[in-house]
Design a protein around this nucleic acid. Structure first.
Lengths: 134, 134
DNA sequence: TTGCTCCTCACGTCACGTGAGGTGGC
DNA sequence: TTGCTCCTCACGTCACGTGAGGTGGC
């Protein structure tokens, strides 16, 4: 009944976070349990929306839940620490670069093999299978 | 007691597939249940080793289990089909390329933001947090 | 009253790895 | 006999999504 009260459905729409995912975040303690109506429905206020948008953006950037917990802590007025934030972001960046390097290697092998496959259409042998066998 | 019989431990070592993973593959029907000794220990022969090496290589290339099932079928003497194999490999290649493109986008955003963070060391504001908030 | 939204479990996803508690085999 | 290997569950991982069966609220 409060002026800015949001249902979980509205919060999901406004934050871009799936409704069940919001409940999941509550279960794992990533967002605080909100107040409830007499009937048991969750009622959220503004700060919950801002927190979820923060989480969604961090997830879109590939941060894991544990990293996001820390980032949320470090974003609080009391102990904002850009140095610590940068350490986490730089470490995540390194992981992203490592994954890219792995995938580029895969891509090279696959692309080369598939192209030999294509050049070989009425095929007596199959480059892809040959790579996997023997 | 057969000449070429392999224990699951030997098979794991020779194939490069973890012992528990071999049992998992048996549970999901990716490899056939082997014969057993009187005491219940699994006894494998050559074909099991070749099949596991095939599976391991395909996994290393990022193919999913379902795709590997099909690749294994298509590799059998009866119905070898390089065209079908190429279709699967090309589709996987497209997925790998899409993932790379996603990660490159992440990498750009993270790298740019982190570098602004570094240039900003005694920081009044934090580029990473600013990106996540508001 | 309708029917849309919300509620709480529990299970499924993906491809495994780990641990418990017990036993085979050289 | 030692002790290394193997056995079978069952549960944990990661971040959720889906479905069942039921109810609140405009």
């Amino acid at each position: 009944m409060r002026a800015s009260a949001l249902s979980i459905g509205m919060l999901a729409t406004l934050s871009g976070v799936n409704l069940e995912t919001i409940r999941y975040y509550e279960r794992i303690g990533l967002v605080a349990p909100p107040e409830r109506t007499a009937g048991g429905h969750r009622q959220y206020a503004e700060p919950a929306l801002r927190r979820l948008v923060f989480i969604r953006r961090a997830r879109e950037l590939g941060f894991g839940i544990q990293a996001i917990r820390v980032l949320l802590d470090l974003s609080e007025p009391g102990h904002r620490s850009c140095g610590d934030v940068r350490t986490i972001a730089a470490s995540h960046l390194a992981e992203v670069r490592a994954k890219i390097a792995d995938l580029i290697r895969l891509e090279s092998v696959l692309a080369e093999t598939v192209s030999r496959c294509a050049a070989n259409d009425p095929a007596p042998n199959c480059p892809v299978l040959e790579m996997l066998e023997a």
